[in-house]
Amino acid sequence: MTTISLAMAVVVAVLYSVGFYLLLQRSLMRVLLGVVVLGHGANLLLQLAGGPPARPPILDGTGDTAGLADPLPQALALTAVVITFAMTTYLLALGYRSWVLVGHDEVQDDLEDRRIARRRTVKASMGEEVEETGDEVGVDPGSAAASDDPVTSTADVR
């Protein structure tokens, strides 16, 4: 079992908290930064699994393994870095596409989900007689639906 120093544990913890905080944001750019920071945290943790920092992962010919770092986690981290890098690029492309298509890069609410939720509330407040027209109620007040719909509101601003 490998134990790590307090300083490194704190660094990893900070990277994870910042990463997850950014991941919970609406803007895809912040999500992207969150993935980058979180990826750094995970890779650092993977590195630390191979022993304390500043040790070489190379045998010096004497066959003495005392001061060596385990090379395997470094190889794993290398693979993980490449994967994280590729995903970061993909997210960037996705953010750009989103900006081209809808004018911003914010992750939207699920419209169908909102429609179902709204249909339930309207039904509850208006009693049983609207039951059969439930679908119209969800779609019909288009103005009410559109005003809290970020797609249209931001498009207007732009």
């Binding site: 079992m1 990463g19 993977l46 997210l91």
Partner: peptide, 22 residues
């Protein structure tokens, strides 16, 4: 993509912790 990336990074964390422990 976002949720899958989050779970992938958690998976990577698991791998790191498992390797550190064993």
């Amino acid at each position: 993509v976002t949720i899958s990336l989050a779970s992938s990074l958690l998976f990577l964390t698991t791998v790191a912790l498992v390797y550190a422990a064993t």
